[in-house]
Design a protein around this nucleic acid. Structure first.
Lengths: 343, 343
DNA sequence: CTGAAAGCGCTTACAG
DNA sequence: CTGAAAGCGCTTACAG
């Protein structure tokens, strides 16, 4: 069976054309410095002429390294897949990976049994490192992988566990600066539409809110919780407005909740920003689409992807597995929803 | 060097425990029916006990098949990565792939030279099939891959070429039904904010618009072009409104352009939907966030991902490479932006 | 239905 | 700096 597809150039052919052994040819492709310039250039010329590209599977099996890193999305049915940040994160990871000549293998196990299979698969040395994309509970996956010596890094600080590597955005500082921005605009009765209590990310943002209010001697009693989506933002805002008529600003923990809140305000006859200023979080495409455009906290998500990749790849090089942690700053994106009322 | 990570169970160990040869053990994992039930169950028991998972690299190199399909995003800097549909597409692909036990390898070559490298890589038999995610010009990539016998499928109909396999959404019908919906609401002076002329997808939608107008004996003279993003939608709407004061409805070829258009209308004092009804395309998260919420054409993107995967995988099974083409319908998502004015 | 054997394309001590 | 040789984990005609 002459494989129609698999009939590509092999190392042996390159070596033959270059007049060296396979061992030598192999060395030039793996960047081994112990090769004469002569041999090196002969091999490179031959490779170029033949259009040779190393077979990763063979290389992986022979060397024990796979030259690829796994990106795992444990809950594809969850919000992450629909999160506006997800593509940006993936892009950052992809850029860094291809800069390092590594392959990105994406796993989105649809069911728990698939996670099980995946765990064995990843533990089987098919991947040099694992990037775990979950903002939720950390699972046993990372523990078992680390036990096998496979470096794992989390995107976003996993709730609960401490002994893991992660890159996160500074949600606390982001929440604080969003709130400080509202205060600087002269707002005083500021409400917060927070995410669910179980979410680390959401509670960090809420903590930032409280801190900013406290620093300015303002009361942070106006807090409602939502599920980060539009509808829960709408509900939360209606409730807040029903309870306190003097609210003059809102910090929502997500743009989607902010959009829902704006809708609630419109229904209830509150003008944005004249009556109530509002700021969101994520700086998603939503933010530019609301009326008026929504101020938001912009996170360096591409950078986060790049840093995660860089860290986990460097960990796969060294034996030591000290947890690496990194927190990135965010910046305010000010739009009309928080501009001082035209007077 | 006792590899800390690679020391996983091998076929040989399973075979030994099961009391059969590696050949027999191998056969049960590859689903070869020529194995006695006795041997089969012994092997399966041994595998379960040992936690064996086949090494894909070894399997790939020995069999010539890779059990993985490549998903290529040729222009990661382009809009696709930021397209709200992208995650949904990826999810559909991922689901179908893992149902078939195939691996998804994602490629997002950042530069043209990376595309070059990738081309050789994919042609080297590292992947059983390729899913090409580009709504733009078709490139030489697919041609060369097909020449090598590697099945390729496009997501979205590539402009220009005909002899390729693709799965697309029926943009023409979508544009027509959006327009018909506006007509059914009693609107008569309907404008279209179209995408760039070079885009197949955009011109299909525009064609649908024209057809619906023609069928109702309405003039389709109110057409402006944008780049599918928010800002160009705003510009286009301003221009349309400046030229024709009697516009009572707009069909925008993307939700983002619709959002921009709504903003322009607000600035110019036109009420939605009272003065002007508006409908978008994509049913992205944007649609629920605008004020009022935006009607839109919803595409079965997850299905598209699944069908693409199913098709390309089936192609990789058979020798014949007749182009497979499939077009999926879309459905209207009606919200307040097109509801009849409350009178 | 089963096993011994060759082979997939590469890497890597080892001995020069 | 270089090559012969063993080996990575699996599959697959081939011969029973």
């Amino acid at each position: 069976m002459e494989a129609a597809s698999g009939s590509s150039i092999t190392l042996a052919q390159v070596a033959r054309l270059a007049g060296v052994s396979r061992a030598t040819a192999s060395r030039v492709f793996s960047g081994n410095p112990a090769v004469s310039l002569e041999a090196c250039s002969a091999v490179e010329r031959a490779a170029a002429e033949l259009g040779y590209v190393p077979n990763r599977a063979a290389r992986s099996i022979a060397s024990g390294r796979s030259e690829s890193v796994g990106v795992v999305i444990p809950e594809p049915r969850s919000s992450l897949f629909l999160d506006p940040l997800f593509p940006r994160l993936l892009r950052g990871i992809g850029e860094e990976l291809s800069a390092s000549g590594l392959q990105m293998v994406l796993f989105a196990p649809p069911s728990p049994s698939d996670v099980q299979r995946l765990e064995q698969y990843l533990a089987g040395g098919h991947v040099d490192a694992v990037i775990l994309l979950t903002f939720h509970e950390s699972d046993t996956l990372s523990v078992r992988l680390q036990a096998r010596g496979i470096p794992v890094i989390y995107g976003g600080r996993p709730s609960g566990r401490f002994n893991v590597s992660f890159v996160d955005v500074d949600n606390h500082a982001g929440g604080r600066s969003a709130t400080e921005h509202l205060i600087a605009q002269g707002r005083r009765r500021i409400a917060h539409i927070a995410g669910p209590l179980r979410s680390r990310l959401a509670s960090d943002r809420a903590q930032g809110f409280r801190e900013a209010m406290w620093n300015s001697a303002l009361r942070s009693d106006l807090v409602a919780h939502g599920e980060m989506d539009r509808d829960s933002g709408e509900v939360a805002m209606s409730r807040l407005l029903a309870e306190s008529h003097d609210i003059d600003a809102v910090f929502a923990a997500s743009d989607a909740m902010a959009a829902g809140a704006m809708w609630a305000m419109q229904v209830l006859g509150r003008r944005v920003p004249d009556d109530v200023a509002i700021i969101g979080f994520d700086d998603s495409p939503l933010a530019a689409a609301t009326q008026p455009p929504l101020s938001s906290v912009r996170q360096p998500i591409e950078d986060m992807g790049r840093e995660m990749t860089r860290l986990v790849v460097s960990m796969s090089g060294t034996r030591m597995q000290t947890p690496q942690q990194m927190i990135l700053g965010s910046e305010l994106q000010v739009r009309q929803s928080t501009l001082a009322a035209a007077s």
